[in-house]
Every structure is written in C-alpha cells, then in structure tokens.
Amino acid sequence: MFKLAFVETKLLTREPGALFSLLIPLFILVVFGSSIEPGDTVLLPMALAIAVGLVGLYLLPTTLAAYRERGVLRRLSTTPVRPGSLLMVQLLLQLVLAVTACALLVTVAGTVLGAHLPTAAPAVALVFLLGTASMFAVGLLVAALAPNGRAANGFGVLLYFPMAYLAGLIQPRDQLPELVARIGEYTPLGAFGQSLRDVWAGTAPSPLLLGVMAAYAAVISVAAARLFRWE
C-alpha cells in the first residue's frame, strides 16, 4: 500500500496535467495580481476555486478513467491487492495536489502580491474541505460514466467551463445576469467560490452554501460509486 502510494506519486509528477493544474491558476493569479490593490479579497479565492476545479474535474477523472481503460484496475484485481486501494491512493494524492496548488497560490498571493489572507483558519479549512469534496465527487462521477480517458478529459473540460462561468470565475459575478448569478451560486463550484469570497471578506460562510456543497459531495459520490465500473 505504501509502495503503491509512492509509485503513484512518482507517476503523478511525470504527468504533465498535474503541472498544468498547479501552473494555470498560478499564471492567472500572477497576471491579474499585478493590478490588484493591497489587501485584495477577490482574486485569491477565485484562483483557489479554479485550482480545485481543475484537479477535481479534469485531472482526477482523466487519471481514473485511463486506469480503467488500460486495464490497470482489472490487472490489479488478480493480485492480493484490491483495485479499490488504487482509487483510495489516487483520491488522496489528488487531494494532496489540490492542497499543494492552493498552498502555492496562498504563498505567492500573500507575499509577492500582498493580497488579503483570512485569519479564520477553521472556516477556511471547512470551506476548502467541502468544496474539494463536492468537486471531487463530480470528478468521480465523470470517471464512472466516461468510457475512456479521452472521453473523461472531454467531459471534464465540457463541465468545467460552464461551471466556472456560473461560478463567476470567467467574468465577475456582478456582470452576470441576475438569474444566472443566483443559479450559479448553487452549483458546486459556485457555492465553493462564494463561500471562499465570504471567508475572505471576513464574514462567516453561509450555512446554506456549506450545506449545498456537503449535499453535492454526498449525493454525487454515492451516484459515482454505484455507477462505477471496474472494467
């Protein structure tokens, strides 16, 4: 199990997609970061939501669906180790990757760009946990439904852009039509983004949005588990 985790970590570092998930949000942060006021509370939450969204919607399903497509999970079923172990290892690794991406963003934003960093650590952790859980659940559902790695990649991208738009990550929320913005707030990525902005603005995250994220995480991951095919 330890060796499996170690080898999967090595494979992840050889995966260009992993590097992209780290660099794309960082690139966005740095490009827009040059024009922010010190103590900005908007840009960093946006970059964090993008980072978690990329890992959950793009990297996670692509990796898992490719493992199924290539028969890696089936081959593992013939050894004393169960293929479920590989899924667990992958989930943990992708979580570590999401945390790393966010830590990188927070560090750069806090030091170089002088953006605002919230002090309410428990609230930040809770929002991050629920947001990541709901994004990963969507990613798992994509992995369950996609026939192969390439399709998972396509579905992930297809889902990412509308979700990012509804979440106000592509253009600011106040420029979206009122109705779209209202709906967007209750999408997984939208609830995550809004909760992050709340925490950054110094207010407590809305219990309703936290509940929305928890509900997405629970319902969608149950659906993914039921629909997941090992081969």
Binding site: R70, G71, R74, R75, T79
Partner: peptide, 26 residues
C-alpha cells in the same frame, strides 16, 4: 495472471512495475 489487452501506466518504468507488483505478495 497475464490478461488479454491490459496495459500499464505509460510513464511507469520497467523496474518500478516489477518492484510494485512484488510488493503486493507475501
């Protein structure tokens, strides 16, 4: 077991594959 039409992850090196699979057995 050698299965029909299985592949390994593309970036896995030969020794890593053997070392990994060896770790699955007692």
């Amino acid at each position: 077991v050698q299965l029909q039409q299985t592949q390994l992850p593309e970036n896995l090196k030969v020794w890593e594959a053997l070392d990994l699979y060896a770790s699955f057995y007692a």
